[in-house]
């Protein structure tokens, strides 16, 4: 048993690199959300409702982000309109 393990462990079980990759992605994502103001999800919902009065778009076609600089914050609104 342990004889075979000695050779097997060289190839398999490189799970640490998978862990690192998954962590880097989730941590980056959560850091992005952490800095956003609390009102943002509500703002996004209302903006979506207003735009839908005129154009039919889905939830993921509107992106709202706040970029904070030293002196001011910028609200960035990205709307992807459907093709005509």
């Amino acid at each position: 048993m342990s004889f075979l393990d000695y050779f097997k462990s060289k190839k398999n079980n490189r799970s640490a690199s998978v862990a690192k990759e998954r962590l880097q992605i989730i941590v980056a994502h959560e850091r992005g959300q952490r800095d956003q103001p609390d009102y943002l999800p509500e703002l996004q919902k209302e903006l979506l409702a207003v735009i839908r009065k005129y154009v039919q778009i889905s939830d993921d076609q509107v992106q709202v982000e706040v970029d904070r600089n030293d002196s001011c914050s910028v609200l960035e609104l990205n709307v992807t309109l459907p093709e005509h």
Partner: peptide
């Protein structure tokens, strides 16, 4: 376990 690639290394955690 780190040397076998089964556990995150110090460097990995520091980097994250």
């Amino acid at each position: 376990r780190v040397e076998k690639g089964e556990m995150l290394s110090v460097a990995d955690v520091e980097e994250i």
